[in-house]
Every structure is written in structure tokens, then in C-alpha cells.
Design a protein around this nucleic acid. Structure first.
Lengths: 205, 205
DNA sequence: TTTTTTTATGAACAGAGTGTTTATATTTTA
DNA sequence: TAAAATATAAACACTCTGTTCATAAAAAAA
């Protein structure tokens, strides 16, 4: 297959400017309050230019967020294998909470902010998918007989995680990352373990 | 204080028409796709009339939903006291799932539908509040020392419930009400009980 | 019933935002 | 340097919003 020619400098620059402008404006006025003209003006570009690259505001948002979440994903993927499923303070859950803390304003608006393209749903779907793969492989590996299908357990897990994350952010992070993660695990581990037919000791995540 | 004069017949009729029209249209096009003109046209009213009663689309939505949720609240409140906190098949959780099943299309759109005024958040806040009152009174009554503040536990509970409710609806209700409620309880009861310092047997809800 | 008040209505208007087209200037790439 | 791709402004048609105003109709009050 033919390799795609490198993106025109101007295109890369324009896209970056639009993304940066959108993120700035979201923090200032919330997603719904931002118009395309706001974005192009802040980015110092003609309004027509916007339509050369994106269909609408939502497409730009998705594109903008990829950058943020790519960073998070990279962080998790670069962890040592034994940490990645471990329950220590550097595990993936901690990393998620830590990332949220570092981008608190943005997370707050995007996860809760009115409208905002139901972004929380997208994130939850992603977490659900990852959890389901993990739970399924755990069940297969340990040959247990789950009382509840892994897909439901994964959904429950993701929903609980998101919910607690939002609570933590909206209450101005009243606990340190380490502690909120501990609380989260305390609340959900047992139920999920027994749902999947695992002993609590087998529940390494 | 003076009693408010009864609402003009026309006003009552107009409001009802607008509410009905909105609900119909939401089911057809989703909340975001509905314009005020759509609503007034369906309701067979002048567009100006809308502004005589509501500030904007959202205000009408809220008003419309009150009817739906009043029905649910009334159902729960009219239960015998011993059922209201009980874990039998007629408990409040079952009623919620049952109500969702009966209004599945509406729930699906409102809880998940893009934008839609972040209605899921409103509902979750309501559930959280109720749960918190209940958990707090439970802790006070049984004199336990919770490891996790009831407000956090309540948030976790509400988030988990909403999450599972949405899953159930989006997967076309693959289990009967009774079974999904059982699964929900299996997943979350243990964690919450120990978080509040209760034995599982003390966890009557 | 008659009078008075309230409500519904359509037309008209101003304004904000969207998305497209076109001709032109500028920058990159080849 | 030539060819191709991109950015731009202006103009335009369109949709939706929210308000005003004069008038007609309906309901409430007398």
C-alpha cells in the first residue's frame, strides 16, 4: 500500500490552532457556549477555513480530545507489565485519577458539562470495553464459572469508576489520589470478584 | 396567604398540548433535533404562544418530565412501609427498573441521548440524595463507624444503579426485572455494607 | 347576560449561527 | 520555477431564536 504524503505544514498548523482554541474556549465558556466563529477568531483564522478541515464543532472536539487521551493511554501502556494489572499505587486506576486531577477543569466540564456530546458516555464505553476484555481473560484463565456475564460486570465497573471520578472532581478532590482509589477498590472489588466466581485474592486489578 | 386562582382552562390545555407534543417529537427525533417550531406545530399552536408559558425548550422538558417522574415517585411512596426498604421483588429498586421498562424508549433517549440537558445527571443527583439520607440514618441508627463517608457511598450507589439501568435498556432488557435487580444487588451490596461498617445482614435495601 | 380580563395568534422584525460558493492571494511541494 | 494545495474574505441562503404589536377569541367576573 502507498504511504500517505506527509500533511501540509499549513494544515497541521491550522488544525493545531483550532484544537488549542477550542480547548481554551471550552474552559472559558463551556462547550455549548462556544461557536465556530469564536474558535476561528481565537485561532486567528478565517471562518471558512474551519470547514476545510472539520464537518462541525463535534468533529473538532473529538479530534482535540484524542490528543489528551492519547497521552493518558500512552502513560498506561508504558507501565511495566506487573504494574499494569497490579493494585499498587501506580496501577492504571491511580493513573486515571491522577490524570483527571491534572486536567481537573477540563474533566469537570467535559464529564459533567451540559450537552457536551455526551462525552462521559464515550469514555465510559471505552473503559467498559477494556474491562470486559480483562474480565473475560481472567475468567478464561482461571476457569471460573461467573454468575454474571463479564459484559455486565464490566459495565458495572466502568459506571462505578466514572461515577466516583466525577464525584471526586466535583467535590474538589477531598482525598489524595491514593485514598480515593483505595475507597473505590474497597467498594467494588468484592462484588465483582464474586460475580465472576473469583476469590477476592484472585482479583488482581 | 391568598390561594392562587385556578389556572385558566386555555393555559392548562396549551401546556398539556406542548408537553405531549414535545414527548412525541423526542421519541421521533431525539431532544436535540426538536425545534420550538416543531413543538408548536405538532401541538397546533402559534409559535408565539410557546413563549407565553416557557422560557425555552429546556424549561418545557423539565416540566414535561415532572409528570413522568411524579408517577414513579407516587408509586414508591404509596408502597407499604415494610416494602419500601425491603429487598423483596416489590422494593423500590424493582419499581425503578419496572418503570424504566415500561417507558423504555423514553428512558433510552433521555438517559443516553446526546445532549438532552444532561438529564441522567439530574436523575443521578436525585437518587444520590435519597440514598445518602437512607445511608446516614442507617449509620446513625446502628451506631456503626463507616470507613467511607455516606455521601461517597451514596454517590457510588447511584452511579452504579444508573449505569446498570442504562446497560439493561440499551441491551434490550436481556433479563427480567427481578433478575437484573438481583444482579445489581449482588454486585454492590457487599461493598457498601462494609464501607458503612455494617454486616451484610444489616443491609436491608 | 354583559362587561372585563386574560389568552392565543399571526405577521413582522432583528439577530445569531450555520454551511456553501466563488474569486483571489499565498504558501508548499515537486 | 511551475504546479498544486491551502487560506481567505465577501457574499449568500438558510434555520432557529426571541420579541413586539395589534387583533381576535375565549374565559372569568360582574
Amino acid at each position: 500500500m502507498k504511504r500517505q504524503r506527509r500533511e501540509d505544514r499549513r494544515v497541521a498548523r491550522t488544525k493545531r490552532q483550532l484544537r488549542d482554541a477550542l480547548m481554551e474556549l471550552i474552559l472559558e465558556k463551556g462547550y455549548d457556549g462556544v461557536t465556530i466563529e469564536d474558535v476561528t477568531e481565537r485561532a486567528d483564522l478565517g471562518r471558512t477555513t474551519f470547514y476545510l478541515h472539520y464537518k462541525d464543532k463535534e468533529e473538532l472536539l473529538i479530534s482535540s480530545l484524542e490528543a489528551v487521551f492519547d497521552e493518558l493511554a500512552a502513560q498506561i501502556m508504558s507501565m511495566p507489565q506487573e504494574w499494569r494489572l497490579g493494585e499498587n499505587d501506580h496501577g492504571p486506576i491511580s493513573v486515571v485519577f491522577q490524570h483527571a486531577a491534572e486536567n481537573a477543569t477540563l474533566y469537570r466540564i467535559l464529564l459533567r458539562g451540559q450537552g457536551s456530546v455526551a462525552l462521559a458516555d464515550r469514555v465510559r464505553d471505552y473503559v467498559t470495553e477494556r474491562a470486559q476484555v480483562f474480565f473475560s481473560s481472567l475468567v478464561a484463565e482461571l476457569q471460573t464459572t461467573p454468575e454474571i456475564p463479564p459484559s455486565l460486570a464490566a459495565n458495572y465497573y466502568a459506571g462505578s469508576l466514572m461515577s466516583m471520578l466525577i464525584w471526586w472532581l466535583e467535590n474538589d478532590m477531598p482525598y489524595p489520589t491514593q485514598k480515593i482509589v483505595h475507597h473505590f477498590r474497597a467498594l467494588c472489588i468484592g462484588g465483582i470478584a464474586s460475580a465472576l466466581g473469583l476469590s477476592a485474592a484472585q482479583m488482581k486489578f
